[in-house]
């Protein structure tokens, strides 16, 4: 389970002064649920997810993930989280097998267990053909599969996806979406950030609309559309954040 309580993150910028990237954000995600964090670029999605993944420390508030506090027990939180983002790359000079095994070792799994899990993941993700090739030569699809296997090697209870389909072709993006659904089926707690309305409607059980670091609305896609009286998620989003289209 994920429970964010008044999560706040500020940065200091020499020119702009204090920037509140995340401002008093609270939400809850249950196991077997996909929570979509929907927002425009710069809305605070990535910062929120980085704070949840303990890559960044919150300035205020906290969150409890799989029973561990992100401020007090960041290492235990990370042991229970699989974090996948467009910015989390692979080691080009390692093979896919070595890459996955490395993260298995970092998660303190025994070597025999790592071997078994790599075999299972390679079966599930159809990776055998390139498992022993170096990642630097991979296509985008192969990279995504390897990254997914990397996030799953320690079988985390919580999955955090930060715009995982960004820049991917349609087929690879569909594979990712399918994988996220699989996570829900397996009972994992999933949080998924995106700015694509279609993905939200297809995937998410609950959507949190974030803008300027603040959570403006929360509910199922259908509920949000109904609440705003708009025809689809995109119009509902625009009405909620009160955004004006650029001239």
């Amino acid at each position: 389970m994920i429970e964010a309580r008044h999560l706040t993150k500020t940065f200091r910028d020499k020119k702009r002064g204090e920037i509140r990237a995340v401002d008093d954000v609270s939400f809850r995600v249950q196991p077997g649920q996909i929570y979509g964090l929907l927002g425009a670029n710069g809305a605070g999605k990535t910062t929120t997810l980085r704070v949840l993944a303990t890559l960044l420390q919150p300035t205020g508030g906290t969150a409890v993930i799989a029973g561990h506090d992100i401020v007090r027990e960041p290492e235990k939180v990370r042991a229970n989280v699989g974090f996948l983002a467009a910015s989390t790359a692979l080691y080009g000079r390692l093979t896919a097998r070595e890459m996955i095994a490395y993260f298995g070792r970092l998660n303190r799994l025994p070597e025999a267990e790592i071997r078994v899990r790599i075999k299972r993941l390679a079966d599930e993700l159809d990776m055998h053909e390139f498992l022993d090739r170096r990642c630097e030569k991979f296509s985008t699809g192969m990279k995504q599969k390897t990254s997914i296997a990397r996030t799953l090697i320690h079988d985390p209870a919580v999955m955090i996806f930060d715009e995982p389909t960004l820049g991917l072709d349609v087929m690879t993006a569909r594979a990712i979406v399918r994988f996220v659904r699989d996570c829900r089926t397996r009972g994992k707690t999933v949080i998924y950030s995106t700015h694509l309305m279609g993905e939200v409607e297809k995937l998410c059980d609950i959507v949190g609309i974030i803008h300027d670091g603040r959570l403006h609305a929360e509910g199922s896609p259908a509920a949000l559309i109904a609440r705003t009286g708009e025809a689809d998620m995109e119009d509902a989003f625009v009405q909620i954040v009160g955004a004006k289209e650029p001239a």
Partner: peptide, 14 residues
């Protein structure tokens, strides 16, 4: 630069 630092920081290692 290669983006692997963030990947590494996701691991539970101190």
């Amino acid at each position: 630069e290669r983006g692997t630092m963030e990947t590494l920081l996701c691991s539970p290692v101190a």
